[in-house]
Design a protein around this nucleic acid. Structure first.
Length: 642
RNA sequence: CGCGGGGUAGAGCAGUUGGCAGCUCGUCGGGCUCAUAACCCGAAGGUCACAAGUUCGAGUCUUGUCCCCGCAACCA
């Protein structure tokens, strides 16, 4: 019998910088679904990749003194390393610079042009010459460029357009007939209310102002714009329009396109329209997931409020990070990520509940029975609860996972873990050992190890190291690690030998307070300092605006050991600045002090309070001294410093 | 009146078709000693943002108000 197939994709990410935990989130979710489907016997094709063309990449590469290709090569190398650390089991990593993809895009472009779905016209828009960017009317701020604040001019550029408007009605009909097509529903509503009600415009699918991209074969001064270049990856990866039709026939249509909410629109509108134009079947589902919010703000490059995800993994383990992303975030909604919460979860759910369970059970097996697990059947009433829950766990997970309730499915695993811990308290194996109730002890240990086996089998969808470690510790053979084997309680063989191993999840000391905040500040400083050479120019220095400020109010921030909320007088205005100097100054020492303030630092929310600047201070871990002035009285608040 | 999401215990969240307000962490008290200062039991803690309405009954439905966040044609 032919296996059922499952085709799942992540977006192809834009490699304009290092990837952060948000990218990991989406990819880990997709990986988990892929693993789950494989466990259930599906033939899975899991696609991810990078969208490597466009002006921004061209610019970034130039800044770094590399060619665009060299630039993206480096990032891709790093990304693949990250994915390998996270245990991402993609079947294909597509790069839009791959020859196959380029050819596919060109052929599609030709075809759509030939059938008049693409036509030549001109794109007219407000253009900021120094920024080399087009802006829409609504993006402009007071009629000026939102990036640099300079005047914009009207510029006409020859462009090819895709007749999106032609597909408007067909799309709407499709949405209505297939209510499961776009999820969550709220995003579908947003899409329809925002765009369809106003009517769809044809979209510009080529640019003459961008060089780094795929050339239009019949008009090479044009470069294919992102819509077609990027979206088409989902079929170019399967070899669409090549001689090898196997994958396309087997896997298309995709079962799930997992995308971020910011690109949901394009996937919900443009992509289906393109597929209609190409007369290909629609994907089964497009799901727009939410974002990770870090300490109240979204992850953003300009805030610099993120770290390399490997930092978190090094502190704990891959499985801790995967667990957090999968369990703490409801798919479809925004989720919270903070280092403190992450470590807390890792300690409580992983170290205390799961890790400790395995540890105490294997320890008892060794201590009381030389690690030998024997089948025996001296039961008590309360055994039934554990055994029932364990034997129905897999079915429960299947129900939830099939509805993409990933977080809930983990919760049901943890409910069983908790039951196992409770079962130990009820059965008190240490008493049984002391009183030499051998047969009952054997039953209890058997039930516990068997429960742990079932938990570990299920965890294979979510975690990459832990299930294997558990299997080794409880000494079981491969045939009872399969998905279906967990549907039956009692497959564990008589005489199985258990060996207590290393702790699965060592507890991590949570250093109270603001590691993360400090990190944010460091990152902000980095923005100003030019990376490699160590020198900055006078212009760079001029970017930093320094003024004399006087501290007029000092307040401790609740629940923070290190932070003061300061009100600083800059003569023309008073600003709130949050500063981590509690350890070094008493409030009364600070009041009235004249200090150096960075006034054009991007505001950051710290502990929920908007900090609109930064104080300059000298020091290291032990000593911190604020920069002050010799003759403070003689210098006025608000004076510029150069 | 551009669109969408949110406001539920100290924190982070869940609440399906309206039917006694829940989960995890933290706090407090107790138990246990197999285990990673872990595990188990119990308790405290909420005007479900506010106001009005529908209803026998509203966190849930309707209307209005306030506040937070995101999107507004390439930030996962």
């Amino acid at each position: 019998m032919k296996n059922k197939k499952y085709y799942i994709t992540t977006p192809i990410y834009y490699p304009s910088g290092k990837f952060h935990v948000g990218h990991c989130y989406c990819t880990v979710v997709a990986d988990t679904i892929a693993r789950y489907k494989r466990l259930r016997g599906y033939d899975v094709f899991f696609l991810t990749g990078t969208d490597e063309h466009g002006q921004k990449i061209e610019q970034k590469a130039k800044d770094a003194g590399k060619t665009p290709k060299e630039y993206v090569d480096d990032i891709v190398k790093d990304t693949k390393n990250l994915w390998s650390i996270l245990g991402i089991t993609y079947d294909k990593y597509l790069r839009t610079t791959d020859t196959e993809h380029v050819k596919c895009v060109q052929k599609i472009f030709e075809r759509l042009y030939n059938q008049d779905d693409i036509y030549l016209s001109s794109y007219e828009g407000k253009y900021c010459t120094p920024c080399e960017s087009f802006w829409t009317e609504s993006q402009l701020i007071d009629g000026k460029c939102p990036d640099c604040g300079r005047d914009v001019g009207v510029v006409k550029e020859e462009s090819y357009f895709f007749r999106l408007s032609k597909y408007q009605d067909k799309l709407l009909q499709y949405y209505k007939k297939n209510p499961d097509f776009l999820e969550p529903i709220s995003r579908q509503n947003e899409l329809i209310n925002n765009f369809f009600d106003k009517g769809l415009n044809d979209i510009c699918v080529s640019r003459t102002s961008i060089d780094w991209g795929i050339k239009v074969t019949f008009d090479p001064k044009h470069t294919v714009y992102v819509w077609i270049d990027a979206l088409v990856n989902y079929i170019s990866a399967l070899g669409y329009l090549t001689d090898d039709k196997n994958k396309m026939e087997k896997f298309w249509p995709a079962d799930l396109h997992l995308v971020g909410k910011e690109i949901f629109r394009f996937h919900a509108m443009i992509w289906p329209a393109l597929l209609m134009a190409l007369e290909l079947p629609m994907p089964k589902k497009i799901f727009g997931h939410g974002w990770l919010i870090v300490d109240g703000s979204k992850i953003s490059k300009s805030l610099g409020n993120y770290k390399d995800p490997r930092v978190y993994i090094n502190e704990t383990s891959v499985d801790s990070l995967r667990y957090y992303l999968l369990h703490e975030v409801t798919l479809g909604q925004d989720g919270n990520f903070s280092e403190e919460l992450f470590l807390e979860k890792s300690n409580s759910d992983l170290s205390n509940d799961l890790g400790n369970l395995v540890s105490r059970v294997t320890a008892m097996a060794e201590k009381y029975n030389q690690g030998i697990i024997k089948k025996s059947n001296v039961y008590q009433d309360y055994d039934a609860d554990l055994i029932n829950s364990a034997s129905t766990l897999v079915t429960e997970i299947e129900d939830l996972m099939d509805n993409l309730k990933i977080s809930d499915s983990l919760t049901s695993i943890w409910k069983l873990i908790s039951k196992a811990n409770k079962y130990i308290d009820l059965s008190m194996p240490w008493v049984l050992a002391k009183e030499e109730k051998k047969e009952r002890l054997n039953t209890v240990l058997y039930n516990l190890i068997e429960t742990i086996r079932i938990v570990a089998v299920c965890l294979q969808a979510y975690m990459i190291e832990t299930p294997e470690k558990i299997f080794n510790q409880i000494g079981i053979s491969k045939d009872i690690t399969t998905w279906d084997s967990a549907k039956e309680f009692g497959l564990l063989k008589d005489g199985t030998i258990v060996e207590k191993g290393q702790n699965l999840f060592p507890r991590v000391e949570i250093k109270k307070e603001n590691k993360i905040v400090e990190e944010v500040e460091k990152n902000n400083q980095k923005e100003v300092v030019i990376e490699e050479k160590g020198y900055i120019t006078i212009d760079d220095l001029a970017k930093v605006q320094l003024k004399v400020g006087q501290i007029i109010e000092v307040e401790r921030i609740e629940k923070s050991d290190k932070l003061y909320k300061l009100l600083v007088d800059l003569k023309t205005e008073k600003r709130v600045i949050v500063s981590g100097i509690v350890e070094y100054y008493m409030p009364e020492e600070l009041i009235g002090k004249k200090i150096v303030v960075v006034t054009n630092l991007k505001p950051v929310k710290l502990r929920g309070i908007l900090s609109e600047g930064m104080l300059l201070a000298a020091g290291d871990k032990d000593v911190v001294k604020l920069l002050t002035f010799d003759d403070a009285n003689k210098i006025e608040n608000g004076t510029n410093i150069h």
